[in-house]
């Protein structure tokens, strides 16, 4: 009997001890940051912000889609203060569902048009912090072996030479690839656009799950051509991988990496402080330091030399309001699922 009691108490005791040892450090920082870009960049930003303002930042890094799902699940009792970076669509979606709040930063006037447009479209709930152009890259070694002219346009990707050589993400799982779907539709019109995607399907060896995966696969030679954002490819070029980045000649779409303040933020003032600071040139130039080569949204911020030169890229007039809305997205995705994905090769 005594042993029974002793042992049960020991078990309970250990449970309580574990509770004690695990819980108390839950003191949150003075700003809880949800950071959706590469880890290095997040760290650079956090260190710089802490140094400048003295506000202690607790940072979590996930993908933008993951943060959207988390925000939605946490809506009853929000944990985060600010959501910085990551592709714009989940930010728009969160704005649409009222998970984030309106804010007008005094820095607004210094921003590029596309950044302000994101802010207007989200009803002031989300602002652009960087932009990245869609494009593709090919493995130069493999291309030499293959022979023939290098591709320059979207149309070139339909060449029979590239059968089973093109890799792109599945738009259902990746915002990058959804940007491409929407770009093609806007560039060519809906029906010709889907015809293009059906023809491209014959050349696609794999629809990856993650948007940046085709860049990695091309750098390793697992695929000849990878369609993704150009800055994701540049990261590998800087790393001396045999990759050449192409901005398609017909014109291309882009993403607007965004920032939103979370509704119910416990440290609202600090969140606003971060918001204003993250839009300044000094903060926006930190990306290049962490090998992220997106184009900053502040007109005064220097664009890193490695970044794709936006003045040389032909852009389409990407309609974020229409193609960012959840209804249109669901419609296009289910159409792609039905008409393209399951086609025989």
């Amino acid at each position: 009997m005594n042993r029974l009691v002793a042992l049960t108490l020991a078990v309970i005791g250990s449970a309580i001890v574990s509770w004690v040892s695990v819980v108390p450090a839950r003191a949150q920082g003075e700003l809880v940051l949800y950071c959706a870009v590469q880890e290095e960049w997040c760290r650079e930003m956090v260190t710089a912000f802490e140094r400048q303002t003295g506000v202690k930042v607790a940072m979590t890094r996930k993908s933008s889609g993951e943060f959207y799902a988390q925000l939605k699940a946490e809506a009853a009792n929000p944990r985060g203060d600010i959501w910085w970076g990551g592709t714009g669509d989940p930010h728009l979606q969160a704005a649409e569902e009222g998970l984030t709040i309106e804010y007008r930063s005094p820095v607004m006037a210094q921003l590029q048009d596309w950044a302000t447009r994101q802010w207007e479209q989200s009803k002031q709930r989300s602002v652009g912090v960087y932009a990245g152009a869609l494009g593709y890259g090919f493995n130069t070694d493999l291309m030499k072996k293959k022979g023939g002219a290098e591709p320059k346009c979207w149309a070139d990707l339909l060449d029979a030479r590239f059968k089973d050589e093109v890799q792109v993400a599945d738009p259902n799982s990746s915002g990058t690839s959804y940007t491409m779907l929407a770009t093609i539709v806007q560039l060519m019109g809906e029906n010709p656009g889907f015809d293009y995607l059906k023809k491209l399907h014959r050349n696609v060896n794999q629809y990856t799950r993650s948007g940046a995966a085709p860049a990695r696969a091309a750098s390793l030679g697992e695929t000849l051509i990878g369609i993704t954002f150009q800055h994701d490819l540049v990261t590998f070029v800087v790393d001396k991988a045999p990759i050449k980045v192409i901005a398609p000649c017909e014109g291309t779409g882009y993403e607007v990496g965004s920032m939103s303040i979370i509704k119910g933020a416990r440290n609202l003032d600090n969140a606003k402080k971060w918001y204003d600071w993250a839009l300044t040139p000094a903060a926006q130039e930190l990306g290049a330091k962490a090998k992220s080569f997106q184009v900053p949204s502040n007109k005064g911020a220097k664009t890193p030399p490695e970044a794709p030169d936006f003045s040389q890229i032909k852009f389409i007039n990407y309609d974020f309001a229409k193609y960012g809305s959840s209804d249109e997205r669901r419609r296009l995705l289910s159409k792609w699922d039905g008409e393209v994905k399951n086609l025989p090769k």
Binding site: Y68, Q93, N172, S173, S174, R209
Partner: peptide, 22 residues
């Protein structure tokens, strides 16, 4: 997985993917 889809990944991307379909 390549183009061989299984439930676990499909479920993951139903939650975090572009479709956001919990």
């Amino acid at each position: 997985g390549g183009n061989y889809e299984v439930l676990s990944t499909k479920i993951f991307f139903a939650v975090v993917g572009a479709a956001h379909d919990q």
